[in-house]
Structure formats: C-alpha cells, structure tokens
Design a protein around this nucleic acid. Structure first.
Lengths: 335, 335
DNA sequence: GCGCTTCTTGAAAACGTTTCAACGACGGCG
DNA sequence: CGCCGTCGTTGAAACGTTTTCAAGAAGCGC
C-alpha cells in the first residue's frame, strides 16, 4: 500500500537522499562501497522509483507515444513490435494510441501524449493534421512520422516508397496479361492509399495504357477484410469483372479473395489479385497472396532509434527522411 | 518549448492557481463566470495539464498497464482494442507491454508499470509468476487477469472457459468421424494450451476413448503460423497422419493448413482441422477454418470496466471472476 | 604536519500540481 | 441591525524526486 520513498532508502543505507538519487542516475559518481549499501537497501525495501516525481523534476519522462491507424492490422502490430523492442531495450515505456483512422481520436491521443509529457511521439498520421504535430514540437516533444514521408526537412520520418510499390504491383499485373485492373483502397484521406494509386497510374502510363480507361477505382470506408469482401460483392454485382485486382492492403485483399471465391470466381485463373504489406497471413492463405512487402518491423525499429537519437542529442541530431524500397512478392494469386 | 503552467493561466484569468485546478478537476465548485474566464485563458495560452505533477500530488495517475503475451496475435490485438475503447472513453491512457511469452520481459513490463504508478494493470500472465502480481497489489495497484481465471477470490479476472473450449473442439472432431487426433500447442507453460488439452482429453474420455491412444500431443516453442507449418512438416515426416488436428490457436492452425496443403494433404478430406480463437483470418482463409470463438473484444472491455470499478470504488468493489463460454464455429476445414 | 587537490556527501531548492483550512462576501432570518 | 450559513475563492503546504553547490574527508607531496 504505502510506497517506499527515496528518503526511507537513504535512512536505511545511512546516506542522504541525494546520494540515493545519484546511485540511481549517475552510479559512477558514487563510491563503490556506498553504492553497494544503497543498492542493498533498495532491494530490502522493495523501492521502486516514482516515475512521475522523477519526470516532474527532471523535466522529461521515459515514455514514448505511439499512434497508429489500425491496431487490428498486422502491419501496424509489426511496426509496434519493432518500436517496443527498441523502446524497452533503452528503458522506455510505450503508450499506445489507436486512431482507427479517425481524426478526432488521433487528436485525443496526441493530447494524452502531451499531458503525459512523453519524451517523443511516433505517429502514422490518419489525416493531414500536421498542425497538431507542429504544436507538439513547439512543446519540445520530438515527433517522427512512421510510414509517412515528411514534407519538410525539419522533421524525421521513416517510410516506404508507396508510389514505387503501387507501380511494382501494377507492372506485375500487366506482365501477367491484365488489361483492366481494379484498385481497391480505403478512404481518400489515407495517404498511403493515394500514393499507391499514383504509382499504379504511372505504371499504366509507362506501359502506354490510359489510366482512366484501364483502372477502376473502388474506395471503401475501411481497410479491413470485411470491406474487402464487400468490394468483391460490389465488383461481382456490377457484372463485368476486371482481369486483375490490386488492393491497397492485404486485409482488403484477403477479404476480396474470399468474396471472389465464394462467388465462384477463380483466382488467379479468372481474376488475379495482389495485396500490399505482405502480412504473415498473405502467405498462409491457401491461394497464397501476391503482395508488396515492406520492411515492417524494421520501420518501427528505425523510427524509434531516430526518435531517441533526436531526444538524446538535440544539438547534434540531423533530421532524416528515410525511405525504404518495397519489394514484390509473387505467389499463387497472380500466377 | 516552454510549457505553460497553471500559474500563468491563473494570473491571466486573474484568479489563484487553486481555482484553475478546481476548474480542471471539480468544475461544479467554481462559479460560472470565473470558470468561463479560466477556460478562455487555458485556450489562449494552450495550456496542457502536466500529468506527472498531477499524479504526483494526487497520488494516482490516469494510466493503465496492459501486458499481453503476443502482440502479433490478432486475439490479443482484439483484446487490446477492447481495452483501449473503454480506457479512452474514461480518459485513461494505456501503456502497452508485450511479454512475447517471456518471463523476464513480463517482469520488466510490470516494473515499468510500477514506476509509472499506473492506476491498474491488465495482464495475461505468461507463466505462473503470480507472486509479482501480488507485489503490485501490495503497492496499491489493482490487477485484473485477462484470459486467465483467478485462482483466489481476492482478485478480478475475465476469462473464457478453455476446458470447455477444448472439449467443444474435440467432440466436434469426433462427430466428424475422427479416430486419431493430434493436438498442437505452444510451450507447456502457457496455461491456455494446458487447459484446452484437459478439455480435449475429457471429450475423448466422455466418448469412451482412451486419451493416451487417441490423442497425439505436439508442443511447439511458439504459437505462430511458422510453428504451425513446422508442426505440419513434423506430422507428415512421421508418416502416419492423424484423422484430425486440433490447434491451440488459429495462428498454429493456419500454418498447419498451409503445411498440409503444400504436402498435398487435402483438408478436410484427408485430415480435418480446427483452430482456436476464431480470428478474423480464420474465415478469410480459403479452406475456411473451423474454430472456437471467444468474445475477444468483449474480454478486453469487461476486464477494463472491472479494473476501473475496482480503482474508483475501492470500498464497495466486489472482486469478480467472470468466465465466458466459448462457441464452436464450423467451417469447411471440418466438413 | 601543512596546504593542496580530488572525491564524496549532505542540505535545500526547485518541478507543477492538488488539497485543505481559512477567509470574505452575500443574503436571509430572527 | 446583527448573526450565521453558504458559496467562491485564496494561499500555502504538501507529493517524491533531481540537481546544485558548498562543505567535508581523504590522499599526497613538500
């Protein structure tokens, strides 16, 4: 019930509170023998440092905020796992916020982060509310954009080239002989979806096709399997099936696959299908899913390393906009 | 950079700091007109309450700790989403810890929670380290067990009857005519796996079979798709295939499915297959997967409600051990 | 043994809130 | 007209750390 304070540890070890604090934070500053005595007292009393008091006085906490668009998407959980790895290696705790793609929830998450005075924030923005992010930075909280290239050089970001990814996907579909392609994405506010579309159109133009003719765009309200299946039903009810479908993420693609197969459409014989992210389940699905692979876990790791570098060396830190390249993974769904 | 304190808000609004605090925490206590003035000052200055200072003084924070076994498992992300829902409704932030099933990581997570002086902890224990949990409770931090029935009445827990689930799965397999059944699980330290095995054995006994004869147990080191596929390879290399496979979770089952199909084993004609959790991907997989459904999201919600009730009404709170019943979902893999 | 340097240690002042006892103003009531 | 609740507000004292600075101890060459 009653928690042990640094003072009680001090009396027990026969030193002053200041010394205990030094043992905790600057162990080198204190003589071997006293340190041992203090550490023993800490163990005996079961003392646990009071994070709030500590960060109040020190002016900064050892927590990071992570705001993602969809915690149900394995892509983001992989990223989160990467973040968590680095954070816990370096003694940071991660506060998780799920925006569900909603502007308001994202804003609320950022408020919570600000209140907690997190050391830094990792965020995959769910909209274009970059002003809120600027406000955070004015408060002295570093921000790294994840899976979203920074627009200015005053900011770190770690992303994967979505335009290239879109091109990769569509070029591949074209190479399998597809003429008419459907592109299934989420809300237009999601930047990833928009960029992948741009890439898709570029690939078509480069192949001498007219994107307006060859590409049918279907925007769903969410990017999960349910929406994917609905998109399939929509395609089928429209009668004229495309030769190939490119889904903006694997959840959509898996739903699409299921929807198509249920309606008796063969994949890839009747329609070929490609997703995006190469989540674990893409290969586990029986008509295994071609996809665009991103270095997901790495994204989280690198973003966190960048963030912590910015926090620890505010002077020498150079902002970086890191852009990974995506990779085409061909499986049965496009063969 | 410089953050605005309550004092500056006070001077600007022409009141004392105490009044500003009242506006923040007990709005009813302060007169309409002053409240408006203070709120305006807050907006003008962009004041954000300092969570650390607040919880230092108040003695409790508005954060919850959540420790899960595998953030990569959709089961846990669903639970986490439920937790997040309730937490953010009530103004709490969630600190996420992933134990990866490792005892040490779990311990470290709990330490972080203790340092942050979280209001309460939600945990799916990765082992039998319930002593650590007792230590937390001695510190005045409430703990609710998730997906793990409490052993004593002095503790809240929310779980789903895993023994019943195991029985459900195996009874169903028997009803499809299976004689020899393989049970694929993770490490023996994971309680869920052990309970599901007990249920499986009970179902066999109830049907007049000898569990020792009819049930082959395969314990993998992890509970993901990769391990599932390895288990399939193991089964196949052993030559004599069982009639049915029961996997302790859907990730294992999906991996198993893929492994079997790759080797030319037909599901369900040659081997029928059932998983556990009924994650979203179970139905999206093409040989759709029979599974045992748990009210996952609900689990998270209820656990969090219980936890917050315990925090807010420490006097009147009655510990509850809630046990949901699982549900059999039959799909193609057992037809 | 004295003065010097080098290490350690201790005392006290923050950090930004919340809380609580006390105070002033305002009416209503006797 | 004075007394007494009530309601709003104030000011100061915590909460448990970290940090700064000065003083004390210990070691060393002269």
């Amino acid at each position: 019930m009653s928690s042990v304070s640094i003072k009680e540890v001090a009396t027990r070890a026969g030193v002053s509170p200041g010394t205990v604090s030094n043992v905790l934070n600057w162990p080198d500053k204190v003589a071997e023998s006293t340190r041992a005595r203090v550490e023993e007292a800490i163990r005996d009393l079961g003392f646990v440092r009071h994070g709030s008091a500590s960060s109040l006085r020190a002016g900064h906490s050892r927590t990071l905020g992570l705001s993602v668009i969809d915690i149900g998407n394995p892509f983001f959980t992989d990223v989160a796992a990467g973040v968590e790895d680095v954070a816990s290696e370096r003694g940071y705790a991660v506060i998780l916020g799920n925006s569900s793609g909603e502007f308001l929830k994202e804003e609320r998450n950022l408020l919570v982060f600000a209140e907690q005075r997190v050391r830094g924030v990792l965020i995959t923005p769910a909209g274009a509310n970059l002003t809120k992010i600027d406000q955070l930075k004015k408060r002295g909280i570093s921000v790294v954009l994840v899976s979203h290239p920074a627009e200015h050089a005053d900011q770190c970001s770690v992303a994967v080239n979505d335009i290239a990814g879109g091109s990769l996907a569509v070029s591949h579909l074209l190479s399998t002989g597809a003429e008419r392609i459907a592109y299934v994405s989420g809300p237009h506010t999601i930047r990833q979806g928009a960029d992948r579309l741009i890439g898709a159109e570029r690939a078509l133009s480069a192949a001498g096709r007219d994107p307006g003719e060859a590409l049918q765009e279907i925007a769903m309200s969410a990017m999960n399997t349910r929406s994917g299946q609905q998109a399939a039903e929509k395609l089928i009810s429209e009668g004229r099936l495309p030769d190939a479908v490119f889904c903006a993420n694997d959840l959509l693609a898996l739903g699409m696959l299921r929807g198509l197969l249920q309606a008796g459409v063969r994949v890839p014989q009747d329609v070929s299908l490609i997703g995006y992210d190469d989540i674990d389940f893409a290969s586990a699905s029986t008509v295994s899913l071609s996809s665009i692979r991103q270095p997901t876990h790495r994204l989280g790791r690198v973003a966190t390393e960048l963030l912590l570098d910015e926090c620890d060396n505010p002077g020498s830190h150079a902002h970086q906009q890191i852009m990974f390249q995506p990779e085409l993974v061909i499986r049965e769904s496009t063969r």
